[in-house]
């Protein structure tokens, strides 16, 4: 059991939208083990964004339990959640979300600032993370001096720098052309091969095909959960 990274039981989440109550998640169960590579899919309104926010500890459930790496996250307060996000989660966003005036290295160091790491160690680990995504020679460039693929790789380096339990990517290739998307997918595959747990939310089947396991949501529940067949070469 100790290699369970994520354990979600009977999770519900409802929002009040004016007078209406929207049930985004209706009793969802999900388990993800260490070093899995999972794609979460589903049509819009299926609850995949809500689930991603839950897994990323940005939101808490209305009911049910969420255990992340042995800690029950579902009952935590704001500050505790912030610390969990800082330690356990590496976010990769569709729109990269880099600080425009900061260099690649500075962007990558940002999570370490909130972890209270010393400047010297931040720099060393930032450089190491950038090297891992193949950007050792672009450390002092600003985002507007980098291509879209390079920007997303900076964002991935930022997600990795805190050595998180899970890399959580939300439509990571949504803003990239197909050649660059392939480049990013190769980075994910390499990280997975090195032992990183990767969770990717996407609505593109082609992108999901890169994952080893595909979870499809519908109406706030898991509709299907299958292992991908290794692609024919």
């Amino acid at each position: 059991m100790s290699d369970l990274v994520i354990s979600v039981r009977d999770l519900t989440r409802s929002y009040e939208m004016g007078a209406e109550v929207v049930q985004a998640l209706r009793g969802l169960d999900l388990e993800i083990r260490r070093n899995e590579y999972v794609a979460i899919m589903g049509p819009s309104g299926s609850g995949k964004s809500t689930l991603m926010n839950m897994i990323g500890c940005l939101d808490t459930p209305s009911s049910g339990e969420y255990w992340l790496n042995g800690q029950e996250v579902s009952r935590m307060g704001d500050d505790a959640l912030a610390r969990v996000r800082n330690k356990e989660i590496g976010f990769v966003f569709q729109t990269f979300n880099l600080l425009p005036r900061a260099t690649a290295l500075h962007n990558v160091e940002l999570p370490l600032v909130y972890a209270g790491t010393t400047a010297r160690e931040r720099r060393a680990r930032g450089e190491e993370a950038l090297a891992r995504v193949g950007l050792a020679d672009r450390m002092h460039h600003r985002p507007n001096e980098l291509s879209g693929g390079q920007r997303q790789r900076v964002a991935i380096a930022r997600a990795l720098v805190n050595r998180p339990s899970i890399l959580l990517a939300d439509e990571p290739t949504g803003n990239l052309d197909s050649a660059t998307s392939d480049e990013i997918m190769r980075v994910f595959e390499a990280l997975h091969a090195e032992g990183q747990t990767v969770i990717m939310v996407t609505h593109e089947a082609e992108i999901a095909a890169h994952a080893k396991r595909v979870v499809v949501l519908r109406d706030g529940r898991v509709e299907s959960d299958v292992l991908n067949q290794p692609k024919a070469a």
């Binding site: 704001d78 912030a82 996000r85 976010f91 940002l110 999570p111 909130y114 805190n162």
Partner: peptide
Amino acid sequence: TREIGLRKALGATRRE
């Protein structure tokens, strides 16, 4: 706003 959201996602607390 997005920068603030990002910083929070990366682990910044309210106080920070």
